[in-house]
Design a protein around this nucleic acid. Structure first.
Ligand SMILES: [Zn+2]
Ligand SMILES: [Zn+2]
Ligand SMILES: [Zn+2]
Ligand SMILES: [Zn+2]
Lengths: 144, 144
DNA sequence: ATGGCACACGTTATAGCATAACGCAATTGA
DNA sequence: TCAATTGCGTTATGCTATAACGTGTGCCAT
């Protein structure tokens, strides 16, 4: 009993560890580092960072979790279904606004930014694989 | 004899350590991690990471060096003088295209992307402090 | 001048993030 | 049945970054 298991919420069926990690991230109000996730899951049998990183790798691959490069941390995807382009998951480039005071993260997508960047790439013969856009600052509530 | 020293190339006068770190980065053809820089400077008396990080902090503050968040590495600023907005240094948001094969980095600026992102921020009441834009992929030469 | 301040520097220790390398177990599909 | 694939668990290690301490120097107001 090791392979994927029925999943209540995801596109591909998730394994037990993947579900646990995803649940923790989904409940979180701010990005979490892999080690913070590990601590949250010690009661569920997690003992080593690799258990977390392996789950995160898969979840990221599925598009259900995003890594915030400027924070070395992870968030559950906050895309609304019925987003403009390509419904469901498998979305393209996305941007994050990260509040440095309360930790809240807003995930959004902007076509024009996307196009502008890929136009630049095309004009330079650059083949993009993954694009990171992260705005650090203060959210409305914290900027008061 | 500890304070800033005449500098051949910079806006603010750099200290000895800052000059050494900046020179290493300027000669490099790819981003360097702090520890790689440290190794390059052992012959010049560097013994500890902090010596590098402190210099990098200042150089970044001066706008002479950029940190690549998705790489945990640093590059010398490649802005042409006579760039569109705000001549000299002290530039605004900048984007990077990073080749995952050869390590080459292109630094560029796009007004429309900038405006688009700050419009989003304004509409949400978000106060941006620092924006990161990094495109990972293959440069023209490596995409062949 | 002299005391206080700001700042760069050097060192040691520690914290935080991520992966290598091993072996085992279960699933899948030739 | 047998190989290939994938997930899992463990131990060890490596890489990235900062805390905390003390030193020396230039500067400036007193
Ligand atoms: Zn998403
Ligand atoms: Zn906030
Ligand atoms: Zn620059
Ligand atoms: Zn290349």
């Amino acid at each position: 009993m090791n392979a994927p298991i029925s999943s209540p919420v995801s596109s591909p069926a998730l394994t037990k560890n993947q579900n646990l990690v995803f649940d923790v991230l989904t409940r979180a109000e701010a990005p979490m580092s892999a080690y913070t996730i590990l601590d949250k899951l010690r009661d569920h049998g997690f003992r080593a960072p690799l258990q977390v990183y392996r789950a995160l790798d898969k979840l990221t691959e599925f598009g259900m979790v995003h890594r915030l490069e400027s924070l070395n941390a992870f968030v559950a995807c906050a895309h609304r279904e019925s987003e403009c382009c390509g419904a469901g998951h498998g979305h393209g480039t996305v941007a994050f606004a990260i509040c440095e005071s309360c930790g809240h993260v807003s995930e959004f997508h902007d076509h024009q930014v996307d196009h502008r960047l890929s136009d630049w790439a095309k004009s330079k013969g650059f083949k993009p694989a993954k694009t990171t856009i992260e705005i650090r600052g203060l959210c409305e509530a914290c900027a008061a």
